[in-house]
Design a binder for these strands. Structure first.
Length: 644
DNA sequence: GTAGGGTTAG
């Protein structure tokens, strides 16, 4: 597809919009009808109210075919009018019209900075990050590409769509191209830190950068930072920022308070939380639903169940417990605190009060029952949830799936998988691992194998413990090739695997006679394999492995640091004697042995000499053997001397 | 009338 070209020169974007002649009277012309002062005061609103541009905007907003209306009114509308229309369709979430209008504006050279910024903002809301990147990427003019508000809207779109990694990559690129970031940029980027694993560290980098550019943190930046501290469990730091915010003369709002309170809840700092509540009230704020719910979390996580119950009663009385969330918080804490009976009571209480569950309370209870070993009860709840025609998300599906798997309810397991397919939810690691465990337990190894393969293909990290278990079971069940395939998936999708994995797979491959595969394992990991397994493999390979690989296998074995036994060489020599056309390989082996200080034992020696005629190389073989003997005697002496 | 953030549950 061809990239849309940019119709306008940069200067047009960068200069302030020219006021329309139809709106304002040029100042240099004296007014005939009224005194300039009076006119100036009344002119703008009045002309706007009666302006043909204004009615044109209204006409496009009301049109059934907005693009046709635009074309009809092309002569009247100016860029800022089109921007109003563009934003209108963004506000009413008509994404198709939004894009059409933007396209029309582009074709008619009616884009400015504001058009791009607004368009990107709404595309972000419509979750269409790809389109934003496409349109942004097609902007040719560098001064537009690095315009701060355009950059901010593009970055904001990526952050909102959960693409934190690409946000920071794009930001670095924008900086290289010449972007001068402002506080908007930093608050956008900081919000991208929220979901990052190392979000706090990244946030600190950004704050340093902000300071080094001479910018001052404002209340928004502090708010974002507090939320980052809370979500990454930096409680002390949250406290410091909250104080700094106050010291710099800002008044904390409800969000600042609830973030700090949330940070306290993770560490069960209930005393600090209570002081903070006092501070909040003293500052004239009234605790809202979120604040009180967060306080409930403080008490619940801290194990202060009496206070939590009391607070829940208060929430109920204030009408703040009409949704399941406060119940979820307390139910979860009770269950995790070993009070599963009380958790169940509260859950039933909640249902009796007619509080509707979207699945959170159910999944908390199902998981809690499962953890406590109450598997049938967990399954009963999963069914109850299903029967109330509930909607599912991935977590709820996983929770129910596990409940059904653990009670061997195959029919329900299949129903869940079908549902997953129907509502187009992609499985995650938890789903895959649950299924793999289940199929394995049910001895349906081909399904366990297929699931692992599927998981691997979809780019998920395999669970090593589980998969090596499946690998061993596949081996025991008579599927060594599949076992090897699982080994390969684990081996080549992960940086490191447990050392014993190689040994385990050898234990399957060697008895099954899959010696070429076993050789691959040995070759890449020879230093991690025990002498016993090496011996086992070597013995088998010399007896029945591919004769053309014998010498390579010898080298790999030797490379491991393991001294190859004479028995192994004896077996190799027997193989070669049976195949005289491989004499070149035999000679190579004997030469190589000499070089490595190995020698054949007397029975192999005799066998070789007896059969040397078969090879037509009687003289040569005798020479090599005597050389080998001399070399090995010398080595023996060297070793003896060094021991002495 | 271009662009910013943040609070609670599995």
């Amino acid at each position: 597809m061809e990239a849309p070209s940019l119709p306008l020169a940069a200067s047009r974007f960068l200069s302030p919009p020219v006021t329309a002649p139809s709106c304002t009277r040029p100042r240099s012309l004296p007014s005939i009808r009224a005194a300039p002062k009076a006119l100036k005061k009344r002119e703008a609103p009045q002309t706007l109210r009666t302006s043909p541009r204004r009615s044109a905007v209204a006409e496009v907003k009301a049109a059934t075919d907005p693009v046709a209306a635009l074309t009809r009114l092309e002569g009247v509308l100016q860029t800022q009018d089109c921007n109003i229309i563009l934003r209108h369709y963004g506000e009413i979430r008509r994404w198709d019209v939004l894009s059409k209008i933007f396209g029309w504006m582009q074709e008619h050279d009616m884009l400015n900075i504001a058009s791009y910024s607004s368009y990107f903002k709404y595309l972000g809301l419509s979750r269409n990050a790809a389109k934003v990147l496409q349109v942004y990427g097609a902007i040719q003019d560098n001064s537009i590409r690095v315009h701060v508000s355009i950059c901010n809207s593009v970055l904001g779109c990526l952050v909102k769509n959960g693409r934190s990694d690409s946000t920071f990559k794009l930001y670095d690129e924008m900086i290289r191209e010449g972007l001068s970031p402002d506080l908007f940029t930093y608050s956008t980027l900081l919000s991208g830190c929220m979901k990052l694993r190392q979000g706090y560290t990244k946030a600190m980098e950004l704050i340093n950068e902000l300071n080094s550019r001479g910018l001052q943190m404002d209340s928004v930046i502090y708010g974002t930072l507090l939320a980052i501290c809370a979500s990454h469990n930096y409680c002390d730091e949250a406290e410091v920022y909250f104080q700094k915010l106050k010291d710099e003369g800002y008044t904390p709002n409800m969000f600042h308070y609830s973030s700090l309170l949330n940070a306290y809840s993770e560490n069960s700092y209930h005393e600090k939380a209570e002081l903070l509540m006092k501070d909040l009230r003293a500052s004239g704020l009234t605790p809202n639903k979120v604040i009180l719910t967060t306080l409930l979390k403080v008490y619940s996580k801290g194990g202060l169940f009496d206070k939590a119950k009391e607070l829940l009663t208060e929430l109920e009385a204030s009408g703040f417990a009409q949704e399941e969330m406060p119940y979820c918080i307390l139910i979860d804490a009770l269950a995790k605190g070993g009070k599963i009976w009380e958790a169940t009571m509260l859950f039933n209480d909640m249902k009796e009060k007619g509080v509707k569950s979207d699945g959170y309370a159910f999944s908390i209870m199902i998981s809690a029952l499962h953890r406590g070993g109450y598997r049938e009860e967990a399954k009963k709840l999963a069914k109850e949830f299903e029967d109330q025609n509930a909607t599912y998300d991935l977590v709820m599906l996983n929770t129910s799936l596990r409940a059904y798997c653990n009670t061997n309810d195959t029919e329900s397991v299949m129903r869940m998988l079908k549902k997953m397919d129907e509502i187009n939810i992609s499985p995650d690691q938890i789903t895959f691992n649950t299924l793999i465990r289940y199929f394995c337990k049910e001895n349906v190894y081909h399904l366990a194998y297929k699931t692992i393969e599927d998981m691997h293909t979809k780019g998920h990290q395999l669970n090593e413990v589980l998969c090596s278990e499946v690998m061993v079971q596949l081996g025991e069940a008579g599927f060594p090739s599949e076992a090897f395939s699982v080994y390969c998936m684990m081996r080549y999708s992960k940086r490191t695997v447990c050392k014993s994995l190689h040994e385990k797979v050898l234990g399957i491959l060697v008895p099954a006679g899959l010696l070429k595969d076993a050789y691959i394992v040995i070759k890449d990991n020879s230093d991690l394999i025990s002498p016993r397994s090496l011996e086992n493999f070597a013995g088998q390979f010399m007896t029945s492995g591919n004769i053309n690989l014998i010498n390579d296998v010898m080298k790999a074995l030797n490379h491991s640091g393991w001294r190859i036994s004479q028995d192994i060489f004896g077996r190799a020599i027997q193989r070669y004697i049976q195949k005289p056309d491989k004499k070149q390989l035999l000679l190579c082996l004997l030469d190589w042995m000499t070089g490595q200080g190995y020698s054949v034992d007397s029975s192999s020696r005799n066998l070789l000499l007896k059969n040397a005629q078969l090879f037509g190389q009687k003289q040569l073989i005798a020479e090599i053997l005597s050389k080998q003997q001399a070399a090995s005697r010398a080595t023996g002496q060297r070793i003896k001397m060094s021991i002495d």
